[in-house]
Amino acid sequence: MKITSIGLKNGIFDDKYGKRGQEISIPFKIEDIPKNTKSFAFLFEDKDAIPVCGFSFIHWVGWNLTRDEVHEGESETANDFISGYHSLSKETDKHYVGMAPPDKDHTYELHVYALDCMIDLDEQHYFNDLYWKMEGHILEEAILKGIYKV
């Protein structure tokens, strides 16, 4: 499986997906999908946030995606997949939190999981709930990495 994004050029995410832009969710496309895939789950995270805030910062998490492409900004408009809680869910009702590295350039990772099932969770859940529901159902995982400049 392979993940690509038109929002990533030469390893750098476009400004519009973070603090210097509209903070709209990143677009991505899934290719070479494993046989028997019923749905996808995804996680967009910043492990470089650990020294700053003490944990890997989750910018977006979703599941029950049944198509191979997500367009920019669809975190707020799509109704055919579920967006769960991110690291600032108690402070904003947006489904996607834009990239905003406070100290240096950060590398952001989009993890996409091909699953052999749909996930029985509503949007009132965090990645840890999704993680346990995916256990034993992951056919393949792909990761797309990119940098957002300070």
Rank of each mutant, 00 (worst) to 15 (best):
S39K: 09
E72G: 05
K16I: 09
E140G: 03
T66E: 15
K16D: 05
D120A: 13
E109C: 07
H95C: 14
D120M: 06
F13K: 02
I30N: 02
P34A: 00
I58Y: 02
P51R: 00
F13C: 02
Y131T: 00
T4I: 02
I12D: 05
R67N: 09
C53D: 09
K16G: 01
Q22M: 06
S5L: 06
D116S: 14
P51N: 00
I12F: 04
I33G: 08
K9A: 07
P27K: 03
S39L: 06
K47N: 10
K16Q: 03
D129Y: 02
L139C: 02
P34C: 02
L88W: 15
Y85H: 15
S75K: 03
M118G: 05
I30M: 04
E76Y: 11
I24G: 02
N64C: 10
E74C: 05
V52E: 14
Q22R: 04
L110P: 15
E69R: 10
F57D: 01
H86Q: 11
M134C: 07
D103Q: 10
D15S: 11
G136M: 04
M1F: 13
I138N: 06
W63E: 02
P101K: 12
K104C: 10
M118E: 14
K29G: 01
P27M: 05
E45T: 10
L88P: 00
I138K: 11
G73S: 07
D105L: 08
D15V: 09
A78C: 12
F42T: 07
E23Y: 09
A100M: 14
H71Y: 11
F28E: 01
K29R: 15
I147Q: 08
V150L: 10
E31N: 12
K19T: 08
H71V: 05
P101A: 15
W63Q: 02
F40H: 01
D129Q: 11
T37Q: 10
F44Y: 15
D48H: 12
L121P: 08
P102C: 12
V112F: 06
G54M: 04
G54R: 10
H125P: 00
F28N: 01
D68I: 01
P102S: 12
E91L: 12
E140V: 05
N128Y: 13
Y126A: 09
D68P: 06
L139Q: 05
F13W: 15
L139D: 06
H125C: 08
K16R: 09
Q124H: 13
G21Y: 11
F42C: 09
N79I: 13
L130R: 03
P51C: 00
D32C: 00
S56P: 00
F42Y: 15
I82E: 05
F13T: 01
T107H: 02
Y17S: 04
G73V: 01
A100K: 11
I26M: 11
E23R: 12
G11V: 08
I50H: 04
E141R: 13
